[in-house]
Design a binder for these strands. Structure first.
Lengths: 225, 225
DNA sequence: GTTTAGGAGACTGTATACAAGACCTGACAT
DNA sequence: ATGTCAGGTCTTGTATACAGTCTCCTAAAC
């Protein structure tokens, strides 16, 4: 009955399947545009089609999968334009998250972010790229949590994962630089400086965008006036 | 085999069920915290449990439903705090949408928005409140479309519907005023003035928040510095 | 009177079965 | 050579069946 052996923190097969499929998409094991055939996935995961179907619906709502009735599901296509579009949204949303986090200044959240920063420092030093990516996601989501806005949190989870998806395609060369920015963003939040926190979050995403555009070798068609 | 008779634009029962459940939640026919028992819903809709289950997963990802493994699904609770939180997110996201829409200035989108404004004027005059609400949603989503950012569009759909959900609980007294704001927002977008468009969108949401807080009789604990 | 074991009922989670639509192939007609 | 039509195969959509878990009620024990 098994075949998946992941976190084991989940209580239902459905959740494991969702996590596993999301993982396969994020890591590129399932490539963009690839067809998701329920039978095959069910067999490869050792479950029936039902959990798979429900997972696919969730992933579709999160934007990782595109479903066309009666034609099936495919891994969403993430064109350069769509990837670029995501940065616009992230600047707005993560900027807000940073501002609210700075406003709230929760001690527990600060503690969490500090821990993530610490672990990330080690992971970067050791060159554990996969873990760096995971910690990056954790940091951004941690800010979302710190904002203390439940809907924002709900929205940010797929958004940040989607961003990670984009970056998994490009090299992690920017990682050290990125964590410097994270640190100063954390400090702005901990200091309670809303404007500074928002500005740093926006700048961080903007820097990521520039890096992304540079690595993918595209000239910015984006109007930046 | 039927029981639902809605738009008929859908191709699968699952989509109809999702739309119907969402509708029942938005209209309050399914009340907050109410348990969603799969058997009962399936029977009441004349379908089997499968489409219902998949719908519930989608609605959970959209934030309308809360699912606890093995305990079942309930209509999400929308506390005053959470409702208030939503306004923060909307200001950020809809502000961005308005800015991008102004940047893009698509003729087709302008046409759509104009049509919605026109119909809304009539609906308000005739006092067709339900249609006013639907047109309100259409207008906001139309701006999302006009922004030409696919991820933003994906995100805005549940967000705007959630906002409508909140307002369905309060009187529609603000409607005429709201549509005046919509008009000027449309004009700013059509004129291509990004800053103005964003500002008007943010102001519109802020006005809605004030109205909401006033109607629900809460003093703003929100720090507005 | 309070507490706790146990069992019936209700509901969710998962699997399997069946129905219907979409696609591909190849033969046949034009 | 192109088109199109029939049949078969593959896949999705929906229904049904079964297993496991939670809840709640009852009754016995202290």
């Amino acid at each position: 009955m098994s075949g998946i052996t992941l976190g084991a923190a989940h209580q239902t097969l459905r959740d494991e399947v969702t996590a596993e499929l999301r993982h396969r998409i994020l890591t590129g094991e399932l490539r963009q545009g690839e067809r998701l055939v329920e039978d095959r996935l069910a067999a490869s995961l050792g479950v029936s089609r039902n959990p798979v179907r429900e997972s696919i619906r969730v992933l579709a709502a999160e934007g990782f999968v595109q479903v066309v009735p009666r034609l099936g599901a495919t891994v969403a296509l993430l064109s350069q334009e769509e990837a670029d579009e995501l940065f616009d949204v992230r600047m707005a949303v993560e900027g807000l998250a940073a501002r609210l986090a700075a406003r709230k200044r929760s001690a527990a959240s600060a503690e969490l972010l500090r821990t993530v920063l610490e672990q990330a420092g080690e992971a970067v030093a050791d060159g554990r790229l996969e873990q760096v990516a995971a910690l990056n996601t954790a940091f951004h989501l941690g800010i979302g949590e710190a904002a203390g806005n439940s809907y924002l949190t709900l929205m940010m989870k797929p958004m940040v994962q989607r961003a990670q998806w984009i970056f998994s395609r490009t090299a992690a060369a920017r990682a050290p630089h990125s964590w410097t920015e994270h640190l100063s963003l954390y400090e702005a939040i901990a200091a309670g400086d809303e404007d500074d926190a928002q500005a740093r979050a926006v700048a961080h995403v903007a820097a990521a965008r520039r890096s992304f555009l540079a690595e993918t070798g595209r000239t910015a068609t984006h109007r930046n006036d």
